[in-house]
């Protein structure tokens, strides 16, 4: 090859990486240079060939799952280590060494376990809430009528979620769907509050809960969760925390 432009500049031109001035200059040159014209045709045909060959390698679903699991584990490890070191520091001076060790072990079982567990579940719920807001994910059954939504869950869950409409109080029921939280099939009821959506997650939770009522805010989402009998309830939304508490008081006065 003798034309210098045919060796490098032409690639920048083909890839759209030249600025406007250089691109226009090259186009003027291209009109007169047979070598560049044939080189450009070559680059184009190679490009087409690669595009049509279908050689792009996607990640397999198995590997994707494995990676997700590992990341969950890794995330769990870091928060568990943090909690346990904090506890140790507080308790060690109070009890003797042995008592401290026993206490740490006890705490690991009864306090940290549920705590990190509830932190993990909260993270999962926020995940589920965010996912539900993606187009087409919010509702499996769309109805403002509780007598339509309630039977829809029949046979889909091994428990019966309480379904009520609170339109008069400013929280109209708009629909429901199935979700999975903490490995359980979960009922998700969707309420609206002005222009915000509120997800109410309901799932069976029979383990002893250390901190039955809690609430908080993360990434701009508020959540309120509580226990009633063997059921766990959690409201999540970008609506105000006071709205969530109001709705909670309607559901369980």
């Amino acid at each position: 090859m003798s034309c210098e432009l045919a060796q490098t500049t032409i690639h920048g031109y083909f890839d759209g990486e030249l600025d406007a001035v250089r691109s226009a200059e090259f186009e003027r040159h291209l009109e007169r240079c047979a070598e560049c014209q044939s080189a450009l045709a070559g680059i184009e045909s190679l490009h087409t060939r690669i595009q049509q060959s279908n050689i792009y390698e996607q990640v397999s679903p198995e590997v994707r799952d494995r990676i997700r699991k590992q990341i969950k584990q890794a995330a769990g490890r870091t928060s568990a280590t943090l909690e346990s070191s904090r506890r140790k520091w507080f308790l060690a001076p109070t009890f003797g060494a042995l008592a401290a060790a026993a206490a740490v072990i006890t705490i690991m079982f009864f306090v940290i376990q549920p705590r990190t567990q509830s932190a993990r579940i909260t993270a999962e719920l926020i995940d589920a809430h965010v996912r539900s807001l993606q187009p087409g994910h919010l509702m499996d059954v769309q109805s403002t009528d509780q007598h339509t939504v309630k039977p829809w869950f029949d046979g889909k869950l091994d428990f019966i979620p309480p379904v009520s409409d609170y339109s008069e109080q400013g929280f109209p029921l708009v629909g429901g769907r199935l979700d999975v939280v903490d490995g359980h099939n979960t009922a998700a009821l969707v309420y609206s509050r002005r222009k915000h959506f509120i997800n109410l997650f309901v799932w069976p939770y029979r383990e002893k809960e250390f901190n039955p009522d809690n609430s908080g805010s993360r990434q701009g989402y508020n959540w309120v969760s509580w226990q009633s009998g063997e059921m766990r309830f959690c409201l999540i939304s970008d609506a105000a925390a006071s709205d969530l508490r109001e709705l909670k008081d309607l559901i369980h006065p």
Partner: peptide, 16 residues
């Protein structure tokens, strides 16, 4: 925990 969520939203879509 929110870092994991952010990671899953920002980075994991590029696994392919």
């Amino acid at each position: 925990p929110e870092d994991r969520i952010r990671f899953e939203q920002l980075v994991l879509p590029h696994l392919d």
